[in-house]
């Protein structure tokens, strides 16, 4: 499941109104999510969740579901 918070972050950084994100949604399917905007999305996510993603982690992402997973993991490890 893609959380609303992630969804909103992505939509904001791509200036989109709405998009139905599923776990297996690929970045290339989403309008405007191209190679130029990809890093912008990552930056927005990092800012929103206050986490840091490693380059290799980002490059290994296959779909939006995996982005959600990695955010969840990072948030769990983070001292509250």
């Amino acid at each position: 499941m893609i959380s609303d918070r992630l969804k909103k972050t992505i939509l904001n950084s791509l200036s989109l109104n709405d998009y139905d994100f599923k776990d297996d949604t690929l970045a290339t399917e989403v309008p405007g999510w191209d190679s130029l905007n990809h890093v912008n999305v990552i930056l927005a996510v990092e800012k929103e969740f206050n986490i840091r993603l490693k380059g290799i982690e980002v490059l290994r992402l296959k779909n939006v579901g995996e982005l959600q997973n990695i955010i969840d993991e990072k948030l769990k490890l983070k001292p509250q």
């Binding site: 130029l36 930056l43 980002v58 490059l59």
Partner: peptide, 21 residues
């Protein structure tokens, strides 16, 4: 190129803002 050069490079430089891009 964008998969193996541009994106990794920009990811590495992403905190430099527009300069990195």
């Amino acid at each position: 190129l964008s998969a193996y050069v541009f994106t990794p490079l920009w990811l590495r430089l992403r905190y430099f803002g527009k300069f990195g891009l």
